[in-house]
Design a binder for these strands. Structure first.
Length: 287
DNA sequence: CCCACGACCTGTGGGC
DNA sequence: TGCCCACAGGTCGTGG
């Protein structure tokens, strides 16, 4: 669900409450999310102090003063909610009915400062683990990850070499976290639309000029989305309860049957399925 | 190795 | 109103 801009927005919402916080009490209300929580999850967290919250791809990272990193992935429907002095909104005041919501409050962090950070995840595709900090880079979740799209390593040259051998569609290739880390279905659709590249093109067939444009467009779309707090479709919100606004700027995603917004294009946005996922694009101006 | 597809889990919204 | 189906922001394992 949450892609890079949403996860980054969540990180920014959690940081004021969790950076430097001591976890006075931790509740694991069920033994597993997508995967079982690690052995001793609660004990290993209780009393630990968190350093600076960070993010890699779609993973949230909370480094602990005990040498472990609490790694959290939101899956499709994971979100955090803050309650306490720093909360801007009353608990439970959100998209799901309170009764439904409460049922999916799976993990609760109580800080020494009296704040409560609750992880909700109805579909339970999210996951958490505790990984030794010095083993993080070699961990299977991180080892093969591609460059951060907003970082210096994400370049047209890099994309060119990743794309070179692939006959797979450019849509599917950009969703591959080994190629570039953090894009998901929405932002790939939006970036390809803005780039004027058909999602069905074989990745390896893109010309240097298209690759350069694509890199720039991906950066722009993500930066814009972060700026407005990500996209709120159903169950996503920042940890402080703020809703994202980027969904109002979608030009392709979710716009099946609506007119292409490029001046004088005249096309109509189509929905196709690639790799089992919806792709939205304009067949006229995306070639 | 590459790639397509089903599985995981629950909720929502549309059509009848 | 109620029921059934399609679909949802992600990733992993399997099998061709």
């Amino acid at each position: 669900m949450p892609e890079l801009p949403e996860v980054e927005t969540v990180r920014r919402g959690l940081a004021p409450v969790l950076d430097g916080a001591v976890l006075a009490r931790v509740e694991a209300r069920r033994p597993d999310l997508r995967f079982p929580l690690p052995d001793g999850f609660v004990q290993r967290l209780t009393g630990a102090r968190i350093g600076q919250m960070s993010r890699r791809a779609k993973y949230l990272l909370a480094p602990l003063d005990r040498g472990d990193v609490l790694v959290m992935h939101l899956g499709m429907s994971g979100r955090f909610e803050i309650a306490g002095a720093k909360a801007k909104r009353r608990p439970g005041e959100f998209v799901y009915a309170a009764s439904v919501d409460e049922k999916h409050a799976h993990v609760v962090f109580h800080t020494g400062a009296g704040e409560t950070v609750t992880y909700f995840d109805p579909r339970r595709f999210g996951y958490m683990d505790l990984i030794a900090e010095d083993a993080l880079a070699d961990h299977p979740w991180f080892k093969g990850l591609g460059p951060e799209p907003l970082g210096d390593d994400f370049t047209a040259a890099r994309l060119k070499s990743e794309f070179a051998s692939r006959r797979q569609s450019v849509k599917a290739t950009l969703l591959d976290q080994r190629v570039v880390a953090g894009l998901g279905n929405i932002y790939v659709c939006e970036a390809l639309y803005r780039s004027g590249i058909s999602p069905e093109r074989a990745a390896g067939s893109l010309k240097p000029k298209a690759l350069t444009g694509l890199v720039e467009t991906i950066r722009q779309v993500l930066a814009e989305a972060i700026e407005v707090g990500g996209s709120t479709l159903r169950d996503y919100a920042a940890a402080d309860g703020a809703l994202g606004y980027f969904q109002h700027r979608f030009k392709a995603y979710g716009r099946e049957g609506e007119p292409c917004l490029k001046p004088s294009c005249g096309g109509v946005i189509e929905r196709i399925v690639q790799g089992g996922r919806s792709t939205f694009y304009c067949p006229i101006c995306q070639r």
